[in-house]
Simulated assay, not measured.
Amino acid sequence: MSNREIVSPVTDGVQPCASSPEEARSAGRTPYEKPTPQNSVMLLIDHQIGLMTSIRDFQSLATLRANVVGLGRIAKALDIPVLLSSSNAQWQNGDTIPELKELFPDEPICRRTGIINCYEDPSFRSALEELMARTGRTHVIIAGITIGTCTAMPTLAMLNDGYRVLPVIDACGAWNQYEAQAAMTRMANTGAELVTTFALGCELQADWKLPTAEAMFAPFLNDLPEYGYLIQNFWNNANGHTVEDPFGQVK
C-alpha cells in the first residue's frame, strides 16, 4: 500500500484569503492584515553597544545579536525601508552596534538626546511620518534593545495613532523576565501583533519561489544556526555525498 502524493505546481503563486480584512471584520471574524515587503517599514531602536551589555533575559548575547542582525538582513533582502535611532549615544549607551551600521551604511541614525520614547522625539516622528506618507505603507515592524522601554513605549503610542504595529520580541532584550512578560502582555492587550524574527521572515517571504528567495536565504543560513547547519548538512551530503558513509546506508 503506497501513499499518493499531491504535488503543487511550481507555477502556483500565493493564494490570498477568500475574504478581505474588511469583509472578515464585518462578519465578526478576526481580520488577517498580512505584513508584506510592500506594506511594511522597519524600526530598529537603540541597539547600542552599551545597552547590549545590560540585557539579562537571554542566556547568550550571541542569540540576541543573531536575531537583530538577521532582522536587519531580512529588511535588506526584501527592500523594506528601515529607520534607525539611538539614545544618548554620546554617553553610557554607546554607538549603534557595528553590524547594523555596516548593513545600512547610507541610512541616517536619529540620535535622540534625552527623549526616551522614540515616537515622542519630534525628529524621529517626522522621519517616520514622512516615510509612511511617501511610501503609502501601513505596517510598522519594530524591535528595540529593551522590550519594556525601547519597544513597548513607541508601540503603544503608535497604536494610539492608528498604526498597525508588529513588535519583534526576540530581537529585543530585557533587564529581567518580569520586564519582558509585562511588556509583551501590555502590547498584545493593546492590539500589537507580537512576532519573532524568522517566523516573520517566512511570513514576509511567503513563497520560496519568489525572486527574493536567494537574498532571503542568507539570514536563515547565517543568523539561525540551527537551521543553517541543517541546510548545510543536507547539501554537504546531497547528490555526490561528499562525506562518505562508512555504513553504506546512503545510496
Rank of each mutant, 00 (worst) to 15 (best):
R111K: 15
G148Q: 00
H47A: 05
M42L: 14
V41Y: 05
A18S: 15
F220Y: 09
T185A: 13
N3C: 11
N176K: 00
M216Q: 12
R164M: 06
I45N: 11
G173L: 07
H241V: 15
A62P: 07
L100K: 03
S26H: 12
T135R: 09
M158D: 01
D79V: 00
M153Q: 11
R25H: 06
A66G: 08
R111C: 13
R125M: 01
L51Q: 05
S54K: 11
A24W: 14
D223W: 00
S87Q: 14
D95I: 07
I45S: 12
G248R: 06
C172I: 09
G148W: 03
L103C: 02
G201I: 05
C150A: 03
R65F: 05
P246F: 12
R111D: 15
G173P: 06
T151V: 09
C202W: 10
R111M: 11
T96P: 05
P122E: 03
R186P: 05
G148L: 00
C17P: 14
N189K: 15
S60N: 08
M1D: 14
E203Q: 15
I142D: 05
P219M: 01
L71D: 07
F217S: 09
E102I: 07
F234E: 05
F247V: 11
P98I: 09
G28L: 01
F124E: 03
H241G: 11
E5T: 15
I97F: 00
Y163F: 04
R134S: 10
A133W: 08
D161N: 03
I147P: 06
S86Y: 04
P21L: 00
R164S: 09
N117E: 01
F247R: 08
E129P: 07
I74H: 10
M132H: 04
N88D: 13
T190E: 15
I6Y: 09
D121M: 07
G72F: 02
Q249I: 15
K34E: 12
E130T: 11
E23I: 02
A188C: 09
L43H: 03
T212G: 12
T146D: 10
N67E: 05
N88M: 13
S123G: 07
S123Q: 15
T212Q: 14
A188L: 07
E179N: 10
D121F: 03
D106K: 05
G50W: 02
G136A: 05
I6G: 04
A27M: 07
N237I: 08
N117V: 02
S2E: 10
P122S: 02
W208P: 14
S126L: 10
V82G: 04
T242D: 12
D161I: 03
S126Q: 12
M158R: 02
A180M: 08
G13A: 06
A182G: 09
N67T: 00
E120A: 01
L64R: 01
N3L: 13
L44D: 03
R4I: 14
E33F: 15
S86R: 08
T155W: 00
A188R: 13
I169A: 11
P105E: 06
M187R: 05
S2C: 10
E107R: 14
A199C: 15
Q181Y: 09
L166H: 13
S87E: 11
